[in-house]
Design a protein around this nucleic acid. Structure first.
Lengths: 249, 249
DNA sequence: CTTTTTTGGTTTCATTCGTAAGTTTTTGGA
DNA sequence: TCCAAAAACTTACGAATGAAACCAAAAAAG
């Protein structure tokens, strides 16, 4: 793998929040100059912030810093997600770190794609990509998550009929299915899903260990999961039993 | 005036794009440490970016760096605009640097206000203010201006009826009135204005020297102008003749 | 297989950085 | 009007920074 050292920096940073350049240099056995170049790179991708003497993750629950967590898996999931999309397609993408990365991958790899999203974060995240058109669904702006919720989402989403709606999730269990942290956002997911032929859940495999608080209730939709290699056979069986297709990145 | 030196730094920066800390220190006759504190402050407001040894404006046509231009006037206009709003009101605010500052001032000074905007930039700009609810009108996302345009704006705006719609402008002349650079954004302004009792144009007085390319066609609306002290008597007369109320900050 | 180019890394150095401690100026009571 | 407390600023200094020159391994070209 190419940028192995950057991945190591990220996972150290996920643990420690904040590390000195000198310590990184000693830990990884390369010169400080090299570490600084890596950090510049990561900062350019908005994954970390550099301060005098340190590197640190962006503010706590910023999506940017959540990207640092399991970054490699997310990258692979995003690439696989992009393969589902053809030039000229329109795709719904919901809020979340995996979704953001998928949106960026699609926007940079495809031509003339329209990305419809309720996430102001994602719109901003991909706005430098020249070959993508972005539509932002309007609504009440949730300040921390930078996403839009409320009845306007449904109204606007009904103007579209697309093949894929990509969403994130917070957890899963056999009984209640995929979950979320927030009732308003869950409703936005349902409203977007209603205008798509197929819902694709983008998530790392470790989210399958426990359910969150708000069920997404996607039972009426055709649902697929796109996750990494580490999904247990046990969970795979349960998903298949519920007619949920599994794609592995 | 309190932060006189910060204003001076800004206007130097508007000219020069990029200045060394050492030079600023010599020019303004204060220590480098003091300059650095000022720069930290300005960076916290996103007006400038610090790089090793230098301070520079954010990227060219970023709204953040346009705020540096005539910052003092804009501040005063924003404060006056905030006086129009009472606790609990809902107000439409369109895209633009004056509007962004007005939105921030309103959000920080008032309680329980709802700001409805088509500007993703503004939503992000004020999202740390705890006492404001933000509604973002959906539509096609314009990448450079970070604002939303297209038919969805009209649909969503019709859900509201508000007293004030605050807008920016690009220029003005006696015949065609206020103007804009972009047809799509001009239409968004009309659609928002249609749901408001009164349109308030927030703009520095020097915009009145020439018109832009796309007329806003606000003739059906009740229009006021909120501008700085330097508006010429000649222009004032012409505006009054068109039943446009003038407020001075 | 050898040569050239590119990439990724190190060392060195003058410069800039933030912190802490000390000094001046402003502010706001009594 | 005067004094104390706070705010604004300076000086001093060791640590961190980016740039440049240099080196080695890998990749590409011949």
């Amino acid at each position: 793998m190419k940028k192995q050292r950057e991945k190591e920096i990220l996972s150290l940073l996920v643990d420690r929040r904040r590390i000195e350049v000198t310590e990184l240099s000693a830990l990884l056995g390369v010169s400080q100059v090299t570490i600084r170049k890596d950090l510049d790179q990561l900062e350019k991708m908005h994954m970390i912030k550099r301060v005098h003497g340190f590197a640190q993750l962006s503010s706590e629950d910023d999506i940017n810093s959540r990207l640092a967590w399991h970054y490699e898996e997310k990258t692979k999931i995003a690439e696989k997600a992009a393969e589902l999309i053809s030039d000229g397609d329109t795709v719904f993408i919901e809020n979340g770190s995996c979704c953001a990365l998928a949106a960026l991958t699609i926007a940079s790899a495809k031509k003339n794609v329209t990305i419809v999203t309720n996430s102001a974060f994602i719109a901003d995240y991909i706005r430098n990509e020249p070959n993508v058109q972005i539509v932002l669904l309007g609504g009440i702006y949730q300040k921390e998550s930078q996403c839009l919720v409320g009845p306007m989402i449904r109204e606007s989403a009904m103007n579209y009929n697309v093949k894929y709606c990509m969403i994130g999730t917070d957890g899963w269990n056999e009984k209640i299915g995929f979950t979320n942290k927030d009732q308003m956002r869950a409703q936005a997911v349902r409203d977007m899903a209603a205008s798509a032929e197929q819902v694709v859940v983008l998530t790392e495999s470790d989210k399958f260990s426990a359910a969150g608080t708000v069920p997404l209730n996607l039972s009426r939709c055709r649902v697929s999961v796109l996750t990494d290699r580490n999904l247990s056979e046990e969970v795979k069986e349960k998903l298949k039993a519920q007619q949920i297709e599994i794609m592995t990145a």
